[in-house]
Amino acid sequence: MSQTLQAAARFDAETTPLVEMRGIEKHFGGVVAVDGVSLDLRPGEVVGVLGHNGAGKSCLMRILSGAMAPSRGEIRIAGDVVEMGSPQDARAHGVETIYQTLALADHLDAPSNLFLGRELKTRFGNLDDKRMLAEARKVLATLNPNFTNLKDPVSSLSGGQRQVIAIARAIYFDVKILIMDEPTAALGPSETAMVADLIRKLRAQGIGIFLVSHDMHDVFDLCDRVVVMNKGKLVGAHDIDEVHKDDILSLIIKGELPTDWRPRNLGELEAAR
């Protein structure tokens, strides 16, 4: 119970949110993929983003990561309005992304992918493959101790290994805001547990995380807050303590809470008051 109150206190109104998205829209011709979404993320907060397939979760995340320009809307990072014109812009603001598609170059090996676009170089501007290999070995080992085939093209790796590379790439650099679009979809149970540990560790460091997931268990296990998208619209945003899994399912499927909904922790809240 005291834990709940502490959690609430961590996100009081005074801390400036890391991310403030306001009125984000994305149109593809006639299709409205994201429809006027406003959403905040605070330091050290894990926000679960849920919704049916095609709800617009990935589009919203891609807009924040600079991969896609919004049709309308505004993004603030640490209080300042920013233009996310390219993935480089987003990275410059500390936004790192694990894309649902992983975004790996199949013919390159793991270190080359990890450092793609941000290669380590020697004094003469040559690629420092030795150092990149050593660094990659280090960071990959923290996620999957069995990762040894670092010199193979990533096309020959398993889905889980590929996902681990995408995760490693996002956390290796100076990350403040982490977007994880279904990061554990291809992972086995032990790797998933490692990613869960990683998320807790990053959150403790004050990093803000958007976790897009279909796994209700993970979401309830890891998130402080959960938001639900339905047909491009944000239909719900709740502290994880005040909802049941069934409430969230109802939001995902029907786009609204059950009519008889009451906050799960109503008793606690009243007791605290």
Binding site: S65, P87, R91, T101, G125, N126
Partner: peptide
């Protein structure tokens, strides 16, 4: 092609253009 960043980017672009773009190439 082998020792400079531009070479790596040439391979990355042909391997998966979208991935290269998202990686900042």
């Amino acid at each position: 092609l082998r020792r400079r960043a531009i070479g790596r980017h040439i391979y990355a672009t042909g391997s998966n253009e979208e991935a290269a773009r998202l990686s900042g190439v």
